[in-house]
Every structure is written in structure tokens, then in C-alpha cells.
Write a protein that binds this DNA or RNA. Sequence first.
DNA 1: CATGAATGAGGCTTCATTCAT
DNA 2: GATGAATGAAGCCTCATTCAT
Lengths: 205, 205, 205, 205
Amino acid sequence: MARKADPNKRHDILQAACRVFALKGYAPARMIEVAEAASVGKGTIYEYFRSKEELFFAVFEEMMGQAGEAIAETAAALDGPFALRMRKLSDSIIQSWLGQLDMYALVMEFWSATATSPSRDRFKTIFQSGYRQLRRIVGDLIQAAQTAGEVPAENDAESVASALIGTWDALLLQAWLDPQFDALGTSRSFMDVVLRGLGAAPIDA
Amino acid sequence: MARKADPNKRHDILQAACRVFALKGYAPARMIEVAEAASVGKGTIYEYFRSKEELFFAVFEEMMGQAGEAIAETAAALDGPFALRMRKLSDSIIQSWLGQLDMYALVMEFWSATATSPSRDRFKTIFQSGYRQLRRIVGDLIQAAQTAGEVPAENDAESVASALIGTWDALLLQAWLDPQFDALGTSRSFMDVVLRGLGAAPIDA
Amino acid sequence: MARKADPNKRHDILQAACRVFALKGYAPARMIEVAEAASVGKGTIYEYFRSKEELFFAVFEEMMGQAGEAIAETAAALDGPFALRMRKLSDSIIQSWLGQLDMYALVMEFWSATATSPSRDRFKTIFQSGYRQLRRIVGDLIQAAQTAGEVPAENDAESVASALIGTWDALLLQAWLDPQFDALGTSRSFMDVVLRGLGAAPIDA
Amino acid sequence: MARKADPNKRHDILQAACRVFALKGYAPARMIEVAEAASVGKGTIYEYFRSKEELFFAVFEEMMGQAGEAIAETAAALDGPFALRMRKLSDSIIQSWLGQLDMYALVMEFWSATATSPSRDRFKTIFQSGYRQLRRIVGDLIQAAQTAGEVPAENDAESVASALIGTWDALLLQAWLDPQFDALGTSRSFMDVVLRGLGAAPIDA
DNA sequence: CATGAATGAGGCTTCATTCAT
DNA sequence: GATGAATGAAGCCTCATTCAT
């Protein structure tokens, strides 16, 4: 990824591409639309990105990186009893995405690219490492609670972590599908069940 | 009379399109590939489907319809105590999709179409009704157990249903992303937690 | 022109083709439209006509033949003084076409085919012989009057005939272009001038 | 700045399209042929014209505009007695078209488009205004002569104008149909008759 | 560096024609 | 003979990419 002179311009283009890809999808998006959205000439994009595909991947990397950082920061700031920490993490993830639900279309495009893009492997790798990171954060949270004796150790922390991540993902998907859907409320109700299943002390008791 | 219309031809084309779209994705898929996969002429596709878009939507409808039927059948055949019924349903869904994991790429194309296709609304409608159906099946299962006193009524059946469905979805996604991922095992571990959280009697006790 | 068994069906198809070609033009007309207009199967057309081109040419031949016959009949029935005969012929031609002005679109298609069709020569030949026939009829009318001493012989009957034919043609064109245009009145006014120019006694004197 | 837009390119394409449409006709003409004739890439045409249809219409507009201008100029330069002015106008029109008789095929395509093109109305409008302009020029010429007492006022100038225009049109058509046909001689003979009919003093007397 | 005019590969789709029934 | 399902050649047009300015 040869970065050219003006890093601002690169970033502008990335931002513009993000909006355009989110709105139209990868294949239907036109390079000219990205150029116009970034207020640059069509040729300028190619000064910063080798191709449409490359641009899309760069958007993907950027977005995943930011999402990962945001979660890592949130996780690092967690405190209080186990159930509360889990609730906070869950709420934070759900809420941050609810605040930019229109970006979910973009996530779908990323998944699609992971399935069928000529460079699907790059997409796959990033997605996998993202999942791995998230799984580790959640898994560590549970294991720490198990080690600390806050919850019994009988459950497989890894599995629960994987499943919870999936649940968040999917609740956001349903929210995106149906604006009426109460993703936050549903996630809280469900987290209560899961936490009880894990043997955690209820939050308010 | 002319060459009698082969009543299977529409279905053959649909099958072929399913394979091609799954393999290449909607936009990169070529009509000629579908034609060749179906062993028909390029023009023949247009005897049965107005356009590429229409063909894709038909594949979507067919697939969602079949998936819905399969789950409805499975749900109708459930018996035994609550925890077992849930486990059976979960296992059935996970296993049936694991058996055709390559079709998951297609599901992602459907999501992508739902986000950005010109006829996204049609996709959205089908997806929503599919989710609604599944939510009802799972929700009814839980409520029946609550009514029967098998589990306490304190939890919101609807929320748990929504979340569980999402979890299955997302576990399969992870399995598709990483062939090493044990979706079935993870789902079982997680279901144990959830069932305990719901207050259900353990399966083997 | 291999005529097949059922001459009625051939005629039906010809009629249908005439309507369709007049309405849509040669290139935009679809064989299926002709088939439907003739209430026959698409393949049936090919039992009677080798190709679309051939069908179009057959329509052309038919139409030119009928037009030629009609004019010949009219001409044969002319009587009275020269000016009256000319007026009658002129009126008859103008009126018969005004009665089927929508067919004028078809004439334009014929001209177009004469210019650019792969078999333009066949079209050209028919058109030329049609013009020749008409020129002879009108020319003979004038020459007969010259011979009979009804008008002076100083003018070139052939030239006047050619020009008059063109005038009728073009007045009908203007009528087709603009439904307000009074082709009959214009032709009468003009014929008066021409007849006076030829030295004919006025019709009403 | 990018490669500077060649201001002639639009015109070059128009010229090329003119040749190709004249030679092959609208429907059989291929965009690639136009591109090659203009020595540009296929896509370049679409930088200047939205579609094949649009290109064709542009050719039409251009041609009608030029023809109109040419006639207006000729008309403005007319002098001498009435009969001479009419003769000059007639000769000028006939001769200018005889000099580019191959363009007559294009005129026929325009007529055809006026009859059957999806945008026939645009064609119709242009044709009508062209006819109106020409009718006014010729009509004014006659009326001026009537006003000046050069010819009696008994004839309808408008009608004669309409008919004469049609006659020129149709004589050129016959010339195009048959290269042997002497359009100029015929038009002169006929003009003599018409002028005599109008009561004009003979040219050479 | 930035630009946008020019390009042409390639896709979707149409439709005249064929031919099995 | 009549039919219409099947076909594939061929065309219009799009749009990512290039490169002269």
C-alpha cells in the first residue's frame, strides 16, 4: 500500500469510498461517485489506490481496525462485578453500532467480498483475526471471572464467547433489517439469561 | 405442438444459478456461466426469468422457502422435555447448514442484495418474514415450556428466541469463515448455558 | 416465392405484417408481433415466408400492386374534358391515400428499405416500375389532350407527369406530417395553376 | 488538466455518423462503425451522445439546420423578375441536393424515424418547422410578386408553395431512385408550366 | 501531483430463426 | 402443416483504468 504524499487526501478518499460503498454496495458503486464524494478527480483515486478492489479492501481494513480499537478500549475500561462488566461490554458494542446502523450495509458487502472476491483470502484473514481478537477479549473476561471464583468454571469460556459475539452480530443484523427491532433490549434480556446460565450473581442484587 | 416445455427446466436453471451465484457472487456471476451450468442456451434463461436480477431473486425465494419448510418440519417433529427439544432444534439447524456450508456464500450475497440491490425491498420482506417465522417457532417452544411449568416464566421468550436465532446464524458464519471452528460443539455448550439460564432441567438429569 | 397450401393463411399473415410494419417500422417490428396479429404461431410465418426481410418485401409488393391496380382502374374510367380528367385523377389519388394515411408510415419504411436494405435492388426495381407506370398513365393523359388539340403541344408531357406524381406524393407526406394540412384543397389549387399553365380550358367555364 | 477536449470531436463523430447512417440506415448501422469512421473509441461516442438514438437525432438536427440555412441564404440573394427568382430558387435547391444525392438515403431514414422512432415527435417537430420555413420563403416570393403586380393575385400562394416544395422533394427522390432521371430538366420544364399557370412573364421574353 | 477525456473489454439482453413434437 | 421452446449471434452500452496535459 504505497501511501502517497498527501495523507489527508488519502483519508478523504477513504471516507468518501466508505459512504459510497455503504450506500450502493461494492459492485454497483462507481469510481466516479467516489471521486465526486471526495471532491477529487477520478484519476486522483488511482494515485492512492491501485484499483477499485484495493480501495474497497482499504476501507475494510480501516473499518475493522477502528472497530477493533474501539472494543479494545472499551474492554480495557471495564470494571465492577462480572455481570456488570459483561453488560457494559455488550451494551457498548450494541450501542456503538446502532449509532451507525447504515454502516451495516457495508459490513454485508465485506462478508460478500469474503465469500466471492478474487482477493477473498485477504478479507477472510482480517475477519478471522477480528473475530479472534474479540473472542479473546470476551473469553478472557469470562475466564477471569472463573479464576476469580465469580462464576463456576464448568462452562467453556471460549464457546460462550464465540456464541455471544455471534449474538451481538446477529441482533444488529435484525435491527438493520427492521428498524422497529429493539436490539439493545433484546440483548439485555438475553444477557441476563446467559449470565444466569453462567452462574453469575445478578447485577442488581 | 412445439417441443414440449420441460417442466424441470426452470428448476434446473434455478439449481445451476444457485451454484454459480454461490461460487462467484451475484455481480461477478455471468449469465453464460449459469446457462452452461444448466446445459441450456443463454437465451433459454430469459424464457424463464426476466433478468439476472429476477433470476437471483428467484434463487433467493426458493432457498428461503426450502429452509423455512425444513425448519418447520423439524419443529413439528420435536418431542421430549424442553431442554431436549431445544437441543434437537439447535442441532438440526446447525447440522443442516453445516452440510451445505458452501451455500453460506449465497446467504451473504442475499444479505448484500438486501442492502444494495435495486429491489432490496423484496429481499428485505422475505428475510423479515423468514426471521418472523423462525422467531415464532422458537418463541412458541419457550412459551410452551413456560406455560407447562417446565421453566419459570420470568424471561422474555421473544427476546431469547431472537437472540438464539442470531447466534445460530453467526456460529455458522464463523464456521464458514474458519473450517476449524466447531460450530456444533460451540452451539451445544452455549445452549447448555442458555438453558440453565432459562431454568430448564438439564438434559441428562 | 414458394406459396404454400393455404393461400388464406398467407394472406392473413401479409395483412398482419402490413399493420405491424406500419405501426412499428421494419426494424422495430417483431416477428412474434406479426404472428400474434395474424393469430398464428411464430413458426408458421416461416412456412410462408423465408425470412422477415422476405415478408417485408412481400408486403411491399402486395401494396404496390394494389396501388397500381387502383390507379389503373381509376385512369381507365376517366372521361370528360382534359382538365376534368386530370382533376378526377388527382382527387382520386389524394383521397384514396388520405383514407389510409396511417399506411404512409409504411411507405416511408419502403423508401428506407430501398435505400439501405440488403435487398434494396428489389425494392428499387418495384418502385421504379411503379413510378414508370404512373408516369405513363399521367403522361398519356396529357399527350392525348395534346394530340386531341385540347392543350398546346409545347410542354413536355413526360416532365409534367413526373412532377405531378411527385407533387401528389409530397402533399400526402405533408398531410401525414401535419393532420391540419389540407392536401386535397392544396392539390386542387395547384392543379388549377398547372392546368392553366398547360393551356387547358378551365373546368367550370 | 486532463487531455484537453477536442472541440471538433463532437463534430467529427457527427460527420462520421452521417456517413454511416446514410450508407447503412439507422437500424443496421453499428456504433462501432461510427466509432471507426470517426477514428475514436466506441466509448468516446457516448461521451458526446447519450445513445445511438440521440446521435441519430443530432445528425438529423444538424442536417436540417444546414439545409435550412442554405435555402435561407439562397432566398435572400434572389433578384431579377419573379419568374427568374423562382427558377433560381428551384435550380439551387435541386442542384444542391443533386450534388449530395447519396445523402438522400439519410433523408429517408429521417422520415422513417419520424414514422416509427420512439422519439418520433422530436423528428416530426423539426420536419414540420423545416417545411414551414420553406413554405414561408416560397410563399413570400409568390405573394411579393402578386403584391408587386408581377402576377395576378387570384392563386393561393400558400398552396402553390406547398406543392412546389413537395415537387422538388419528389423529383429528387426520383433522381435518387433512378440516376438516369433528369431532375433539373424536369423541374425546369415543370416550373415553366407552373409559372405560366401563375401568369408570370416568361423568363426570356 | 491532479485531472478527466478517451478507451475497449465485456456483460446483459434481444430476437430472428430452427426444429422436435 | 403448425407450433413455440430453445438457441446463440450480435449489439448497445457501461465503466474501470490509463495517460496526455
